[in-house]
Design a binder for these strands. Structure first.
Lengths: 162, 162
DNA sequence: GGCTATTAGTTAGCCGGCTAACATGTATCC
DNA sequence: GGATACATGTTAGCCGGCTAACTAATAGCC
């Protein structure tokens, strides 16, 4: 799911279109298209970066969520927190288990539950790679001044928490 | 490629992490995570909206780029403008041709080239659906004031055109 | 205590990207 | 003008999401 429109319309072009097409709000459309484009681009960038650690953003997020939650969660809880389906989480966990970063532990009181547990190796991996990720993030946002970063975070939050 | 982290860390949590992990810039990380999350969420929303027109964002973008360019482009040009590979464009065009929205026209001067041409049906489709898309965009950005929209568009542009 | 509904996890198969390898046609250069 | 390089588009096969359908286990209700 990538949206990497290279040739985004500029304000002048959109204002021209606004005469032809109804409902066109130039500022909304500009912001929207740039948001989609940058979101995809940054996600692509994250995946290219994580490939150097033989990792994908999906599995990485699972590790980070697990780490942040004390290292033990049910697959359904992980799926909910991460925003993927349980089916997808099954696949993510299987690959993390194959790599020895996570283990599955059956609940002896409820046979349906099988918690995902971060292994020592998994914990080391997160602690080793997290600083690199933060550096990657800083590099991605380097063109913005500290003030712009705060403004961006603040405005985006209004869309998340209206 | 979705990044829909439901449970984004807040400022307080990141500040706590900043003590533990080096290289962590709280504002950069907040903005970055929200950007990824919203980009994925909006792209998902666009796909859900377009599904009502039996359309996907990939094919829709191809139609719009074609429309904006006068209705005739080479697949390689389309791929470049849209930010997908030529291989992906082959698939997108095949589906649009199947639906009668686009036709392929062999170049009689260069046998390698086979331009994609918007049909009358394709043109009508774009003119019919574009206003709905603009309304969708307005609805997505409704939580933002006009001032916030301008600020968002301006800051994002610094990341696209540093 | 035994149907029934619900919950947890998995499996199967789809979809839209990707890369790599492949025709096929054109350009270049000796 | 023929070998070689390059450009265009397609194919084959991978990957990470998804939905829908399934199994297994628990909970609830009569």
């Amino acid at each position: 799911m990538a949206f990497l429109l290279r040739e985004l319309p500029d304000r002048a072009l959109l204002e021209e279109f606004a005469g032809e097409f109804t409902h066109l709000d130039v500022d909304a459309t500009l912001a929207y298209l740039r948001l989609l484009r940058l979101g995809s681009e940054m996600l692509d960038g994250l995946d290219r970066f994580l490939a150097g650690e033989d990792m994908t953003h999906g599995r990485w997020l699972t590790l980070v969520v697990l780490h942040r939650s004390g290292g033990r969660l049910l697959p359904s809880e992980l799926a909910e927190k991460q925003g993927v389906t349980r089916a997808t989480m099954t696949g993510l966990l299987t690959k993390l288990v194959d790599r020895g970063l996570v283990e599955r532990e059956l609940d002896d009181r409820d046979g349906r539950r099988e918690a995902a547990v971060l292994t020592a190796t998994g914990r080391r991996f997160v602690r080793r790679v997290l600083p690199k990720v933060y550096r990657h993030i800083n590099a991605e946002l380097a063109p913005l001044s500290p003030k712009d970063r705060r403004a961006l975070a603040r405005v985006l939050n209004k869309l998340i928490d209206p």
